[in-house]
Computed example of a mutant assay.
Amino acid sequence: MKLIECPRDAMQGWPDFIPTATKTAYLNQLLRVGFDTLDFGSFVSPKAIPQLRDTAEVLAGLNLSQTKTKLLAIVANLRGAETAAGYPEIQYLGFPLSVSETFQQRNTNKSIAEALAEVAQMQNLCEQRGKELVVYLSMGFGNPYGDPWNPEVLGQFTQKLDALGIRIVALSDTIGASTPETIIPPFRELTAAFPHIEFGAHLHTTPQSWREKVEAAYSAGCRRFDGALGGIGGCPMAADELTGNMATENLVQYLQEQGVPTGLDLAALREAQRMSAAVFAGH
């Protein structure tokens, strides 16, 4: 079981700039919890995501000497990937590849074909630099634009990523459209068809729907989950009425109920929750 904490996703759309020192202190607390991976920042245009323009400064302040947690940075193009790959502390580069043509244009100003060509270049870069590319299939559970969606579409995308040597693929519920009916078939089919690929779930939920979504993904074979403390965040590029991220504390609760060991320091997690409430106060 891998839990990926995503403060980057919580922060990126936050209306008030969170000071660099505040971000750094919060991330250092999250590093004490024992998550598998911390999705900590992004190397994208400051015009697109002004909140994360200080990712390099934040990285310089992280205490990585006593943590097993690995760092993941989101990139939107090859240029960002080259920047991120230059930092030895970063192990994973994450790239959002949409199965919706409309959203791919909206999110990265590229067609799916252009984005796939760039994914191939990023994968080569990662192989050269000893990094691992994580591809998020955004709009992974349906989209509001009328673009085709079904498990077969996800399978076709995964086949292309598999051919490039990509080994971590996260299905992403960019707008909170997922239901158990759209979660179970893709995970069931993909984990069977591509046993050598690690499939993750990046789910957006409401307080009422989180449990059924986690249960659906877990029962269908998913063992990698993204979350954000407090359920804060979403995708600012979707420009729709958004549900929040999957709340990490809910994920932990579900796994504890199932008797699944999380390996987390629960005292450090509680302190991180307290800090999160302070970081994201006032809205």
Rank of each mutant, 00 (worst) to 15 (best):
E5D: 11
I18D: 05
N28V: 04
L31W: 05
D36Q: 14
D36W: 13
T37G: 08
D39S: 15
S42T: 12
S45C: 10
P50Y: 00
T55G: 02
E57I: 01
V58R: 01
G61W: 01
N63F: 01
L64N: 05
S65D: 15
S65H: 08
Q66D: 11
T69C: 06
K70G: 02
I74S: 12
T83F: 02
A84C: 11
A84T: 13
A84Y: 02
Y87K: 13
P88Q: 15
P88K: 13
I90W: 03
P96D: 04
V99K: 00
E101A: 12
F103S: 08
Q104F: 04
R106I: 12
N107H: 07
N109Y: 02
E114L: 06
L116C: 12
A117I: 09
M122R: 03
Q123Y: 02
Q123E: 10
E127T: 13
Q128W: 04
Q128E: 14
Y136P: 05
S138T: 15
P148L: 10
N150I: 03
P151M: 07
V153D: 03
K160N: 14
A163I: 02
A163C: 07
L171Y: 00
S172A: 12
I175E: 04
S178T: 09
T182M: 05
E198I: 14
H202Y: 04
H204F: 05
H204Q: 14
S209G: 14
S209R: 14
W210V: 06
A216N: 11
A217I: 09
D226M: 09
G234S: 02
P236W: 00
M237E: 08
A238W: 01
A239Q: 14
L242N: 10
G244Q: 00
G244W: 00
M246L: 13
V260I: 11
G263Y: 02
L266V: 08
L269E: 15
R274A: 15
M275E: 15
S276C: 15
H283S: 13
